[in-house]
Design a protein around this nucleic acid. Structure first.
Length: 564
RNA sequence: UGUCCGAUAGUGUAAUUGGCAACACGUCUGAUUUUGGUUCAGAAGAGUCCAGGUUCGAACCCUGGUCGGACAACCA
């Protein structure tokens, strides 16, 4: 019997998603000579998000799997919305994810001349005409999904007149909005996109790549499919909303008599507790709900990167969510699982106390300092050990001490013994409170000198192990505690009279000062750590020498908090 | 009152293409543990949107419904 191999998803590796099934069928039938050529076609008008990551991983992944190639192509057909800033960020994000388009970096604007030729070809075939109707009139005459449209009075201009008008459009003789080039298809077509769609419009804005060479620009629908065709894309993979457009693209391909790519649509990614539309993401940035596109609360790739996510964890996530055609909303907890899974293996451990409580070890000699050994990563002993200073006064986490503990609480409480990680067993003897407020100011403990390193020679066991830092040696670190951006699981499902921004989580960012072990004083930006018993943290780009700033990527799983 | 697409545990994705509905996350229980982390062992949870039909046999094929989504920018 054949042994099944398992991938990340633990599904048998011979289980294929529907796109792989189509491609394998095409290869079997020797379609396009059995070759596979995909592309990732972003518009440079925003930053990439985790949904784009799914598409990037799919397109580059498919090409790799079937020995093909994947192009990067910017669909830059609208100069008023697009910007070089976005091009740079998109390229950076794809590279960071680990994909390489080599020399195949293309732009729809590279093909403007060819596209223009295509347009003239349609005019000459009496399949396109210049229409002088106003935008408003065109919209009205298009009809609705249930009613037919009306033919434009300019629909039957002669080839010569259309050619002349279109050339004059190109020459800049007309004002923006005064006329457009339209395909001549069918104003009563059940598919609205087939009702004489606009092919070219006049935009007198300089383009980030072609400058002022053009004042007419092709619409996306007239560019996208033909660009795929020009690049000989065999499998043109896109999201479901473009399904209706396929009929139009096929019409262009047929009328223009050019190579026919095969379009395959899949369902876009949605995530709980966040929004994914470019428009909303832009609003969050512009209205300062977040601090820029790379704010660690954003589902953007640069946001996730700054948050501390690894490319590997995003790829693992992409594998696990699969590819299908039905609408889906993935629980963010799956994304969090993936990053914990990876970080557990690669992140070195450190100790940091986020909410300190002073502990005086009364039987420990004053002015004495010891250097204790701590393991850098128990999942990877090759990462070695480091020294941590220990002394009479330390800080522990305030949550790790309860004066009157509930059942099954096995951290510190009066009379209870716990282990200080990598140090000693300690026992609480006194609780010092503020006489007026009753707040616990500090606690006094005694330690067992024989338990050095964390084990007692008499074999005595303790239930709890807590982290700590030495008061005289620890450093101060700024910690940014990030949480989900929205309170609502489905912020895009807006109730009457509300806006999605009403569901923003006011506590999605808390900035605190923490005490950290001295080895954290100087860290390289983007280094990821696990702060033991707390979570995974990444050194933010705001880190300065001696002044580290850490972003919380994700907390550790906590089965105690659930028990409570 | 249109066209197209979709529907499988809470969430996703599978089911050798008509043959015992599986895997992951999540949830719960237990073991191990110098992180209440990790690891390990186990459990609960769907009878496949509904109703018919074809078939020895249907998640899969057919018919009719229901529900959800996409489409009416000189956006992509």
């Amino acid at each position: 019997m054949e042994t099944e191999k398992f991938d990340n998803n633990n599904l048998p590796s011979n289980s294929k998603n529907f796109i792989e099934q189509i491609i394998e069928e095409d290869i079997k039938n020797n379609k396009n000579g059995g070759s596979v050529h995909t592309r990732f076609p972003p518009e440079p008008n925003g930053y990439l998000h985790i949904g784009h990551a799914k598409s990037i991983i799919l397109n580059f992944g498919l090409a790799k799997k079937y020995n093909g190639l994947c192009n990067l192509r910017f669909d830059d057909t609208n100069p008023v919305k697009e910007d070089i800033e976005y091009i740079d960020s998109i390229k950076e994000d794809i590279k960071w994810l680990g994909f390489d388009w080599e020399d195949r970096e293309y732009y729809a604007s590279d093909y403007f001349e060819i596209l223009y030729e295509y347009a003239e070809k349609l005019i000459k075939k009496e399949k396109a005409y210049v229409c002088d109707l106003s935008p408003d009139e065109i919209s009205k005459q298009r009809g609705t999904v249930t009613t037919k449209g009306i033919e434009s009075p300019y629909r039957n201009r002669s080839i010569e007149e259309n050619l002349d008008l279109f050339r004059r459009m190109r020459n800049g003789e007309f004002e923006e909005g005064s006329c457009v080039l339209r395909a001549k298809i069918d104003m009563s077509h059940p598919n609205m996109l087939m009702r004489d769609p606009i092919l070219y419009r006049i935009i007198k804005t300089s383009h980030h790549r072609t400058g002022d060479k053009w004042c007419i620009y092709p619409m996306y629908d007239f560019a996208h499919g033909q660009c795929d065709s020009i690049e000989r894309i065999t499998h043109s993979i896109c999201t479901l909303e473009f399904e209706v457009h396929k009929q139009l693209y096929d019409w262009f391909v047929k009328e223009l008599e050019i190579f026919a790519p095969q379009q395959i649509e899949f369902a876009r990614l949605n995530l709980t507790y966040t929004v994914m539309s470019k428009r909303k993401l832009l609003e969050l940035v512009e209205n300062k709900y977040v601090n820029g596109w790379d704010d660690p609360r954003m589902p953007t790739i640069c946001g996730l990167r700054r948050r501390g996510y690894t490319p590997e964890s995003i790829k693992m996530f992409s594998d696990k969510i699969g590819v299908a055609r039905r609408d889906n909303t993935i629980d963010v907890s799956l994304l969090e699982f993936c990053v914990r899974e990876h970080l557990n293996k690669i992140a070195e451990r450190r100790m940091a106390v986020l909410n300190p409580l002073k502990v005086v070890i009364t039987n420990y000699p004053d002015n004495h300092i010891e250097e204790l050994d701590a393991v850098n990563n128990p999942e990877d002993f090759e990462k070695g050990t480091r020294k941590i200073p220990f002394s009479r006064v330390i800080y522990i986490e305030r949550d790790d001490f309860i004066e009157n503990p509930p059942q099954h609480f096995f951290r510190l409480s009066p009379g209870n013994e716990v282990r200080l990680r990598y140090a000693y067993f300690i026992k609480c003897t006194d609780v010092i409170k503020d006489p007026t407020t009753g707040e616990i100011k500090e606690i006094h403990c005694t330690y067992d000198p024989a338990s050095k390193g964390g084990n007692s020679p008499d074999g005595r066991k303790v239930k709890g192990t807590i982290h700590w830092v030495s008061a005289n040696h620890c450093i101060e670190a700024e910690i940014r505690l990030y949480d989900r951006l929205f309170l609502s699981e489905f912020p895009e499902q807006v109730e009457e009279g509300h806006n999605y921004t009403d569901y923003l989580n006011p506590d999605s960012l808390k900035i605190i000062k923490a005490f950290a072990e001295p080895s954290l004083a100087n860290v390289d930006i983007n280094t990821r750590f696990q702060f033991e018993r707390i979570g995974y943290f990444t050194a933010d780009k705001d880190t300065m020498p001696g002044k580290p700033v850490f972003n919380r990527t994700v907390t550790l799983k906590d089965s105690w908090i659930r028990k409570k």
